[in-house]
Simulated scan of single mutants.
Amino acid sequence: MLDTHFRKYIQRIIEMGADFFIKLGRKANDITILALFLGIFSGVLVYGGYKITALIFLWISGYLDAVDGTMARKKGSSPFGTVMDITFDRIVEISIILGLAYRYPQYDKLLLLLASTIIISMTIFLTTGTMANKKSEKSFYYQAGLAERTEGFIMFSLIILFGEQSSIWLIIFIIMILITVGQRFLEAKRILKD
């Protein structure tokens, strides 16, 4: 929801990052890889209990994830770059979930449920994107929903910050993703017409 409706308010900041890396001669895929490593390191920091540092690395990773997409739109995107971007986003999410699971084993069942709902939501997202003849400004059809990337980062941030008392944030995040699953499923039914 935030990515779809509020990105226009921060797009200039994202474009500044994209222009900076383009001037350095970097390609979008380089920034995608950098975002991946920073995101994975964030998961390691979560496990180590370095909450604030983990959040800084997570949000820098997220910013670079937006920057690489803007770079791809400015300089041209490749189909493999799209595959890298979507795959690496999931690896970052898995890294955070694993860091949380090893740090807070009492939440392993909720984290497993969270991972499961993300898998279902992304399955609908990717299948619909493949089957739809529509394209957005991205290189694939983008299904909006209540829980998009920014909402995910906000919820992960709350879970990381509250640590031992994060069960309520996990439950809220799972519910948000389940609502998104419903939204995406109904949209898929509408645009793909049974």
Rank of each mutant, 00 (worst) to 15 (best):
K189Y: 04
T117I: 13
F140T: 06
L45V: 05
E93L: 10
A188E: 05
L24V: 06
G129L: 04
K138W: 11
F140G: 01
L111Q: 03
W59H: 12
V181Q: 09
Y63P: 01
Q143D: 09
S166K: 00
D68Y: 06
L64R: 04
I120C: 06
S77W: 14
L186N: 11
V83P: 02
E15D: 09
T150E: 10
F185G: 07
M1V: 14
T123E: 13
V44Y: 07
K75M: 14
G43I: 07
R103S: 09
K8T: 08
A28D: 12
I60S: 04
A18T: 02
T128R: 09
I191S: 05
T127D: 04
K27G: 03
E187A: 01
S116R: 04
F173M: 08
I172R: 03
K109Y: 14
P105T: 10
S139M: 09
I191N: 03
D3T: 12
I119M: 11
I33G: 00
S157V: 06
K51P: 00
A66E: 02
L186C: 02
D108I: 14
W169C: 09
N29G: 01
L110H: 04
I52M: 08
G99E: 07
D108F: 13
Y9K: 05
A188P: 00
Y102K: 02
D194V: 03
L111M: 07
I40E: 00
V83R: 09
T70P: 00
S116D: 05
E15A: 07
F140D: 06
K193M: 02
G48Q: 14
L64I: 03
F173W: 02
I91M: 15
G81Y: 03
S167D: 15
M176Y: 11
A132N: 11
S157Q: 07
I175V: 15
A66L: 13
K134V: 01
A115V: 06
F20V: 09
T150N: 08
M84W: 06
Y47K: 07
L192N: 03
P79T: 08
D3E: 15
L55D: 06
K189V: 06
I168Q: 08
E151Y: 05
I171V: 15
Y142M: 14
Q165P: 00
N133H: 10
S167T: 10
